[in-house]
Write a protein that binds this DNA or RNA. Structure first.
Lengths: 352, 352
DNA sequence: TTTCCCCTTGCATGCGTATGCAATAAGGAA
DNA sequence: TTCCTTATTGCATACGCATGCAAGGGGAAA
C-alpha cells in the first residue's frame, strides 16, 4: 500500500482514459469539464489517492499560496496568540504559513533571507530583531511585506500594522497620574524596536505634559529574566517608584512577581504595575494586570487584508495602519477617581 | 529597482557568459566548478539579486526541505516552546516549518490533509485533535510522520516521541501520598487524547497500589476555562480534595488561581496542586507550581532525529520513543519527608 | 612529446502541472 | 438539412532548476 512513487496527474489520466490536461482541469475550479468526465477522473483520482502537487502548480502559476511569517521569542504570549490567529485566518482563505523563527541573539537577517527563495506570496515580519533593511529588500523583490506590531522609522513604503503604542502609553501615564502616582518608572523593551521607542516616547511626553519629572528608565529587553533584574534595580534602590509601566505584559508579570515575592511589596498598595498587550495571563486572578490591550484579532485581520489587497494589486499604495486599543483596568494599579467604564465585559478607562 | 519578473538562473548565466547549468552548479554544494567561474557567476548573481527558486528545485530533487508541523491550542505555553525549539532545530539543518493550526472544534483532518499536497518531507503531529487515521494516511503516502507528545493506541507503525506520562503520573501519585494526602482529585485533559489516557491511568493505578480510593475525576479538556469550572466543581463540593493533580500546567494554573481567589484556599496548606509539563510559568513565584517536567529540548531533538533518520532510510523500523522526565518540586504541594534532591539547579523528587 | 586522467563545462532532458490553441463534438437556429 | 455557436478535450509547451552525459582542456607522469 505504501506508495513509493507519488501518484501524478498522468497516472490518473491513464486510468481514466483522458489526457493529463483534463485531469488538471478537473482540479481547477472554473475550468471547462463535462460532468461525466469529471466524475470518471475523480473516481480514478480517488482510487489512486491522487493529490495535486502544489509545488509543481506553484512553478506554473507563480503563486505558492504560502505566506512567510517571521517571529521571535514565542515565550511572550502575545506572539503565540498572534500566530494562531494569523494561521487560522490565512488557512481560511487557502494560504499556509511558513514559519521563520529569529534566533534570540545575533543577526537574523541571513537566515530569514532564505524566505524569499521559497517564493512566498507574502511576508509578515513580527520580530523586533529583524532589520528594516530586510523588509526593504523583500519589497524590492516584489514580495508584499507587512510589518506586524512594528513600523519603520521613515515612511519607506513598507506596510505595517500596529497598535497605537504612543497613545496607549500616554493614556497609561495619564491613568497613573490620575491615580495619584508621582514617582514613575518605565521598564523598557528592546532599545532599537519601534514599539519600545513609541511607548517610551508616549509615556515620557505625557508625563511631561502633566508636569511630572521624567520616569526612571531601566532596560528590560522584552525579556522575562531581564525584567526581573530591572525590578531589582528599581525596588532595591533608595527611591523606589510608586508605579511601574512595563513595555509589555510579559515583563510586567515578571516585575509584579519580583515586587511581591522578592521585595515584599503589595500590588497595588505599595506599587502600581501596568503592562501592554493585554495577553491572556493578564486577566488571571494571580496577576489581575492592568494593561493596554492590543486588538489582536483586528490587527491580524488588517494584516491579512493588506496582504490580499497587495496580491490583487501590487501597485496599491502602501499603508501604515494603526489600530486603537483600550486601557483594560484590573487590580494591579491604583484606580483614579473617575473615568472608569465597562464596555463589552471589560472595565476600561476613558478619561473625561 | 522593483523586480517584476524574478531573476532566474538563465539571467545570471547570460550576464556571466556561462550556461545555466554552470550557474546551478555554483549554488549546489559539492558540485564541480572552477573558482574563477564561480566568482564570475557569484558576482553576476549578486548584481542581479538572484535567489535560487526552491520551488523549482524541489520539483527536481523531490525534496522540499519543508517539514509540516500540525499544532492546536497555542495558549498552552508548552506548545509555543515546542514550536520554537522545533523550528530552531529544523532551520539549523536547513529545513523550514510549514505550520498547520488545528481548529479548536470540528474535524481538523480535511484541512490538514492539504499538507501532503505541499510535498512536505516530513510531518510532526502535535495536536490531540488529529485522528490516528490521518497519521496512517500520511504514512501510506510515504511521508515520514512523527507524533509529538502523543501516541497511537495500537502500535500501527507510526513513530512517536512523548514524555513518560504514565510513570510521571504515578510518581505524582506517590509524591502526594508521601506528602500525606488522602483525598485526591484529577483534572483530566481531553478525553480521547493519549496523554490524558496515560496520565490518568498512571495516576489511578499508583493510587490503587498505595491502597487509596480512586481519585475524583473532573473534566478539564486541557482548557483554561474548563479547568476553572472543574475547580469550582471540586472546591465547592461537600468533600473537597486535599490534593489535585491537573493533567497539564495550563490547567493547573487555572485551578490554582481558582482555589486561591475564588474559593479562599491556601496553596499548599489547604490543597496541594500539581501540574504536568513544567512550562515556564510554573517556575514563576506567583505559582511556584510543582510539576512533572517534559524534556522539551530532548523531545524536539529526538523528533528531528527520527525525521532525518527516516529521510535517510525510509524503511527503517518505526520507533516509539518515551523520554524520561522528572518531578520538579516547588511550593504548590506539601512536601514528603524524604526523597528531595537538588540536581542541575532544580529540586526534584526521587523516592528512596 | 605522448598518453592518460581528471577537472570543467555545456547540452539536453525531465520534474508535475497549467494553459493557449486548435480540433472535435454537440446543439440550436434558420 | 445546413451553418454557426458553444462546450469540451487533447496537444504542446513552459515554469526554473538539477543532473547524466559527453566533449573539451590542462596537467602530470612516462
Amino acid at each position: 500500500m505504501s506508495q513509493r512513487r507519488p501518484v501524478t496527474a498522468q497516472d490518473v489520466a491513464r486510468l481514466a482514459g483522458v489526457s493529463q490536461s483534463a485531469v488538471s482541469r478537473c482540479f481547477t475550479p472554473g475550468a471547462s469539464a463535462a460532468p461525466q468526465m469529471r466524475e470518471r477522473v475523480e473516481a480514478a483520482a480517488r482510487s489512486l489517492g491522487y493529490r495535486p502537487n502544489l509545488i509543481a502548480r506553484s512553478l506554473i502559476t507563480r503563486r505558492s499560496r504560502i505566506i512567510g511569517v517571521a517571529l521571535g521569542y514565542l515565550h511572550n504570549q502575545f506572539y503565540p496568540a498572534v500566530l494562531e490567529a494569523l494561521s487560522e485566518a490565512l488557512q481560511a482563505i487557502g494560504y499556509q504559513v511558513l514559519l521563520f523563527t529569529a534566533p534570540q541573539e545575533g543577526d537574523a537577517d541571513p537566515r530569514i533571507a532564505d524566505i524569499l527563495r521559497y517564493q512566498v506570496d507574502g511576508l509578515v515580519l513580527a520580530s523586533a530583531s529583524l532589520s528594516s533593511r530586510l523588509a526593504a529588500e523583500c519589497r524590492a523583490s516584489g514580495v508584499p511585506v507587512v510589518l506586524f506590531n512594528r513600523t519603520t522609522a521613515g515612511d519607506d513604503g513598507t506596510e505595517s500594522v500596529s497598535g497605537d503604542n504612543e497613545a496607549g502609553a500616554a493614556m497609561i501615564a495619564a491613568f497613573l497620574v490620575a491615580g495619584g502616582h508621582r514617582r514613575l518608572a518605565y521598564v523598557a523593551g528592546l532599545e532599537n524596536s519601534s514599539t519600545n521607542r513609541d511607548r517610551q516616547r508616549g509615556f515620557c511626553a505625557a508625563l511631561a505634559a502633566h508636569g511630572l519629572a521624567p520616569p526612571r528608565i531601566v532596560a528590560g529587553g522584552y525579556d522575562h529574566t531581564q525584567a526581573q533584574r530591572a525590578a531589582a534595580l528599581l525596588f532595591a534602590s533608595g527611591d523606589p517608584p510608586d508605579a511601574v509601566f512595563c513595555a509589555n505584559d510579559h515583563m510586567a508579570l515578571a516585575v509584579m512577581d519580583a515586587a511581591r515575592h522578592s521585595h515584599g511589596l503589595r500590588v497595588p498598595d505599595d506599587v502600581s504595575i501596568i503592562g501592554f498587550d493585554d495577553t491572556a495571563p493578564a486577566s488571571w486572578p494571580s496577576f489581575s494586570l492592568t494593561s493596554f490591550s492590543q486588538p489582536v484579532a483586528e490587527m491580524v485581520a488588517a494584516t491579512v487584508g493588506l496582504l490580499v489587497a497587495r496580491l490583487a494589486d501590487p501597485d496599491a499604495p502602501a499603508r501604515q495602519l494603526v489600530l486603537p486599543g483600550a486601557l483594560v483596568v484590573r487590580g494591579s494599579a491604583r484606580l483614579p477617581a473617575r473615568g472608569l467604564v465597562t464596555e463589552a465585559g471589560r472595565r476600561i478607562w476613558r478619561p473625561q
